[in-house]
Computed example of a mutant assay.
Amino acid sequence: MTFLSYAYRFASNFVFLALVYFSLNFLEKYEQRVVVSILVLIYAAMHAASALRSFYFFQRIERLEIEARRLALAAAEGPNAAAARRQIVTDVSALRHAGEIKAYIDLLFLALVILLCIAKIVTN
């Protein structure tokens, strides 16, 4: 399921990149291309800021994982409780890692979109 979510994220970002590419190439007038490029740049900048903010969030989750592991080792409530806590921490760790990979995929395609828009603004 994780790889399917990566494939979906990759495909949806690729469709966005293709949409931007074809919409900028079909515009005849330079002024129209610049306006569309600037609007796409604003959207990409907001989306990139959100993706970069998520890395701060993932860093905080990682700190919580480390603290939960430390507390689980310190608390001796029985083997069943410790195993349940370990499973929860492992699941959260896997979800955090998947979220980080998805954010990297988003940033890769946003960088490509930004480069495409800047290239269309610079060229006449």
Results as ranks from 00 to 15, higher is better:
R9D: 04
A11T: 11
V15F: 14
A18F: 13
A18Q: 13
L19Y: 14
Y21V: 09
F22K: 14
S23E: 02
N25R: 12
E31G: 07
R33M: 01
V35I: 08
L39I: 03
L39K: 07
L41T: 04
L41C: 04
I42S: 01
I42T: 01
A45K: 05
H47V: 08
H47I: 08
H47E: 03
S50A: 10
R53H: 14
F55V: 02
Y56K: 10
F57P: 06
F57V: 09
F58E: 00
Q59D: 09
Q59Y: 09
R60H: 05
E62Q: 12
R63C: 02
L64A: 09
L64C: 05
I66Y: 04
E67S: 07
L71G: 12
L73M: 10
A75K: 14
A75L: 13
A76P: 11
E77Q: 08
E77H: 13
A81H: 12
A81R: 13
A82E: 04
A84L: 15
A84R: 15
A84G: 10
R86L: 05
V89D: 01
V92H: 03
S93K: 11
S93N: 13
A94V: 06
L95W: 03
G99I: 00
I101D: 00
A103Q: 03
A103I: 00
I105H: 11
I105D: 06
L108F: 15
